[in-house]
Design a protein around this nucleic acid. Structure first.
Lengths: 134, 134
DNA sequence: TTCGATATGTGATGTTATTACATTTGTCAA
DNA sequence: TTGACAAATGTAATAACATCACATATCGAA
């Protein structure tokens, strides 16, 4: 699964809601936005989110219980390598980046400690350049 | 604030619950453990947790909504530097480490992007050495 | 001692996520 | 074509996590 058009109806609705948002959305915010499209229950959102996470099309921000569309869907640096998120606590904007050195250092620790990593979360909370100068 | 004996009654109870646990605890698990000590409401736990987080005596694990006592309370590497957590999804054990190179790379990104970081979360989910070989 | 800051007690409520079960839709082979 | 299985969907109820609002108590410093 790589392309948007292969998504099911609910998956497309949820993905599009995230894609058109300018920042992360909570599951219940997505639910509210999709009421007119027939959504009635949280599970309709959560099931779609689970699949979209599987497909790598969206990310979950653990520190704020919210979801964002992947900013670099065509980048090969994703899939390998860990992704870090800088989350502005003023405006909600999220910047996504990956860093091979960080990825390498984490892998060194896991290797030397026999830890099989499945998913790694790196989230930087703070104030972005725009909000900091304003 | 650095020493345990300066904590208030509720803060001590919550901290001791975390200190004697062999892994992370949720706020509601702590509440249940402290019913016999007079705890009745979630807020009693959350307020103590907030202070203990301020004091740097405990950590919050964002990816599992749980809390742990700091593993290296006397280390000067804490306070500066970011702390990473490796969380075993089998046994729940948490390993805590810090890495100056990771800290440096994150700071490089935030500096060159004008991002004022306040708190950074690094959490590695997976299976620890013990559980992986078993 | 009185004032302000901090801590505590308690009920209600808000927010996030899952369980359980019924039904529908899509796919594929016989 | 059909029957059978997998995947997706619909819905209600409930569980798990967190905060608000307001009252009361405790402690230290002026």
């Amino acid at each position: 699964m790589t392309a948007t058009q292969e998504l099911t109806k609910n998956q497309s609705l949820v993905f599009n809601a995230l894609a058109r948002a300018d920042g992360p959305l909570s599951a219940y915010t997505i639910l509210d936005q999709l009421r007119n499209d027939g959504f009635r229950a949280p599970l309709q959102v959560y099931r779609a989110l689970d699949k979209l996470l599987d497909y790598g099309m969206i990310h979950r921000l653990e520190s704020i219980n919210a979801f964002v569309a992947c900013a670099h869907p065509h980048s090969h640096s994703h899939g390998h390598g860990m992704i870090a998120f800088a989350i502005c606590e003023k405006c909600g904007q999220v910047s996504e980046f990956s860093d091979d050195i960080i990825t390498g250092r984490v892998r060194e620790w896991t290797n030397s400690n026999g830890f099989k990593q499945s998913k790694t979360t790196i989230e930087i909370r703070g104030v972005c350049a725009n909000c900091g100068t304003a």
